[in-house]
């Protein structure tokens, strides 16, 4: 049952990811953003399958919620004119696809060669376990993230001033 769910979520993530990156039917960024949301929800399902329950919830809240709203808001704010059909760059597309495929094959070969424990130990990623680790062993990364978020917020507010140059 869990294996079946893995294949379902993986297929949804890959297909939605492909449609977000290179949609053959529409050049509209809105469609790409919505397909990205589908892929993010599938990734959240994978997190739950991996017993990372809290991260699954965070993925939906932060990514599929906040980040997607930001994306959609900016896409609609920019009010893009219909993108004119660009000339297809067949050579570049083929070359890039071959390179990406080679990279995927390389990483996959490394992953398959490494093998790994078939029977997973019982690691639970509930809010309690994650919070305890976050405020003891991983306190410094937590503080760094806090500083980063403040810096990003100040930067965005400055960039979005009316007379920003």
């Amino acid at each position: 049952m869990q294996d079946l769910l893995f294949y379902v979520f993986a297929a949804v993530a890959l297909i939605a990811g492909f449609l977000a990156v290179a949609n053959p039917f529409s050049r509209n960024p809105l469609a790409s953003a919505l397909f990205l949301a589908v892929a993010l929800v599938a990734v959240s399902g994978l997190f739950v399958l991996l017993h990372a329950f809290f991260l699954g919830a965070v993925q939906i809240l932060i990514y599929a919620g906040a980040v997607m709203v930001l994306f959609l808001f900016v896409i609609m704010l920019l009010d893009l004119r219909e993108e004119q059909k660009r000339r297809a760059r067949k050579v570049a597309a083929g070359l890039a696809s071959a390179l990406a495929l080679a990279l995927a094959a390389l990483i996959s070969a490394a992953a398959l060669a490494g093998g790994g424990p078939a029977d997973p130990p019982a690691l639970e990623g509930g809010a309690r376990a994650l919070g305890r680790a976050l405020f003891t062993d991983f306190l410094l990364p937590f503080e760094i993230v806090a500083v980063l978020l403040v810096a990003a917020m100040v930067g965005v507010v400055w960039l979005s001033r009316k007379e920003a140059a």
Binding site: Q2, F6, A22, S97, A100, I107, G114
Partner: peptide, 25 residues
């Protein structure tokens, strides 16, 4: 049964897809 290699291969495929978009679009 689905194990670590399955997830790593899926991760590699998704990463390549994203890389393709960054390079091509």
């Amino acid at each position: 049964p689905v194990g670590l290699p399955h997830y790593l291969v899926l991760s590699a495929l998704l990463f390549s897809l994203g890389l393709l978009g960054v390079v091509l679009r």
